[in-house]
Design a protein around this nucleic acid. Sequence first.
RNA 1: GCAGAUGUGGCGGAACUGGUAGACGCACAGGACUUAAAAUCCUGCGGGACUUAACCUCCCGUGCCGGUUCGAUUCCGGCCAUCUGCACCA
Length: 815
Amino acid sequence: MEYSKKVDQKWQKKWKEEEIYKYDPKKEGKKFYTMEMFSYPSGAKLHLGHWFNFAPADSFARFKSMQGYNVFHPMGFDAFGLPAENYAIKTGIHPEDSTLKNIETMKKQLDEMGGSYDWDYSVETCMPNYYKWTQWLFLQLYKAGLAYKKEAPVNWCDSCKTVLANEQVIDGKCERCGTLVERKKLAQWFFKITDYAEELLQDLDKLDWPEPTKKIQTNWIGKSEGAEVTFKGEKGDFEFNVFTTRVDTIYGVTCVVIAPESELVKKITTPDRKEAVENYIKETAKLNEIDRLSTERPKTGVFTGAYAINPINNEKVEIWIADYVLEDYGTGAVMVVPAHDERDFIFAKKYNLPIKSVIKIEGDEDRKLPFHDYGILINSEKYNGLTSSEAKEKIIEELAKKGLGKKTISYRLKDWLVSRQRYWGAPIPIIYCDKCGIVPVPEKDLPVLLPYDVEFKPDGESPLKKSKEFMECTCPNCGGHALREADTLDTFVCSSWYELRYPDAKNNEKAFDKETIDKMAPIDCYVGGKEHAAMHLIYVRFMTKALRDLGFLSFDEPFKRLIHQGLILGPDGNKMSKSKGNTVSPDEYVDKYGSDVFRMYLMFGFEYKQGGPWDEKGIDSMVRYFSRIEKLIETALKYKGKENNSEIGEKEEDLLRFKNLCIKSIGEDIDNFHFNTAVAKSMELLNKINDYIKENDKINEKVFYETIETYIKLLAPLAPHFTEEIWETLGHTTSIHKEKWPEIKENEMKGGTKDIPIQVNGKLKLCVTINVNDSNDEILNKIKSNEQVIDLLSKNNVVKEIYVPGKIFNIVVKK
RNA sequence: GCAGAUGUGGCGGAACUGGUAGACGCACAGGACUUAAAAUCCUGCGGGACUUAACCUCCCGUGCCGGUUCGAUUCCGGCCAUCUGCACCA
């Protein structure tokens, strides 16, 4: 049957009936766990990006399976989240209804793609049998002290009376109504990811991940070594710490600045400065994080009226507040050294604070301020003349003796805020008892079901808070009146452990079985977009480590190898988006050409790790390729069983040699996600086979036929339906996907000829053909007896001859 | 601002640890087949010079300028452009 969507359907039906992608943990072969980042069913359908991610990754899984691994290749849905809720607010369609419907559609599409998934091992994070365990996981972290509650600011739209996600804040305004967004403090749940900062950083070394991604994580964790220095109030009535990486510049301190949110501010502000300070705090609160951190904005701040004592020299300095100091980094307070820090310099200039230089650079004594380079200390009393790094040690030593300082390490990484004031998420399994306070929901009472009938339109309250039925409960401790936590969990919590659930997806007793997951983990290959380099990929790593420490796992890292697919852009070169109107739907192509033509085109036309602008022009070339293959198969059938020639001559040897070369390089290419070159190589093999037919009156049926079967097997992971059809045409009654990846026959690889380039001063002059089997002496002989080479050697002033065995012969001449 | 990535024909893209730059394909051009077109097949296809033409030969060419090397798309230094992250991190 000529290839079309009909062929897809025929085989999809058959595969389903025969359950050929059923995963059996007991099957022979070493386990291989490969997965793609699961998709988010917000849109109604899979888009081109999904296809580009999933189809080649599926080919990879199929290849591994042919290699003899027992491949586990699950797929699921990250089903909770904001878009479904927003969609519901807009249309009135309940998030659960739209989500479940989308999942059905997407599953169907994934089957139409030819995905080799076993849906018995699937997760949908919005289903109670999944989020029960997400809640369980929260409880484990809570018990271990890794989940805690504290006040944290949220983006608040006072007109919509709702909390906004960062992405809903556009230019500091609410995306719906344009109201200026405020920062409001709410008590929220956090996971203590910072406890794992050091290990998360160290273990990056163990991972086979793209280097840029490791770098992003390194920066995200943001380790910096420095010191905490204690400044006391001038009357000794208060004290606070500053964090600095440049304690060597401490003699240059001309003021200290604390974050406006700091509790200390109220305490120390003098009455005459109260109004100014309070106004400033109010102004700061209006700014969202993005604005506040913008480099464009001028530095601002106000004096609190209070003074602190520099512990190194007892100098009295002013205490200011300024919004460029962040409460949650370091200690929320900095010492201002205008001479050696750009931000401090601008700040000091603006408010006429003194600027005192304490570092000089040897040989560049007149260096313009500010500069932050290390140098030699000046104006620093007994430390004058020391280098920056010597001074750091000594100064810390002195401060430590006084009990006013110590070395410390600071991380940029912040604890993970997991509370969301949303409906469509997993309820946080916490109860607030009138008497007992915070009480975790007992594990036996899980799941805390998300009620269906809830008013989720924004009107100032968390949606769940409005459901009396949900909120009212009795305390598991004392039986008294209690209320439930109304917030739900960040969806990143759901996706921080799903890879653990897949192999044991139907377990009703546990989130996952330790023995099962220890056997399956770590995931051998994880494929997904690099936009998750910082958030998702750090959260999963954290969760794995936390669960390990709680005794639920015995491995340290979830994903051994990570691959990022590139981004397919719109035809205009911009990121595809509905608002730009440049989206491309895969469905029409699949209908028109069939899944395999489409997936082959995606693999051939783009570099997998790179992506690029969509261009449909090349699809026809793939249609052409398929029909050339079909034609070849017709020819093959004509020859089948007719022995014309059993001789193995040079042409047969060449063909066999090339066949083996293809087995090797196509295999390596797929293994490395270089699908474009894998397809290219397969095209070369087709050309070689066609040449063989053309150039021979009598073909060797056995060699020819074996090469063709090998060729089709090499294509099997890439074009699963098409090759299955051909396999049947060739007379096979079992699935090609149960075949083994062809073996390389070393004896067929031997021999053949090769061109050795002859260069003069690195420039190509000619090539000399040699036999691969020749010894180096023979090769050199052949080269040196070549007439043109003799000519080159005799007419030039030869300085040197360089021969790299089997590679190149270069004659160095002097002009 | 900081960090990272990328830059190769008209286009998508090849080139293993430095060793024949442009694999494979698209587009294009010419030819065969056809009444014709489509499809298919064959040939050519980085730029330039020389040449009546062909073959040869030579020069230039992997963003730009330098360096290391017998030899650089590959390594090093400096620039330019584009893209992507991160955002005053003390």
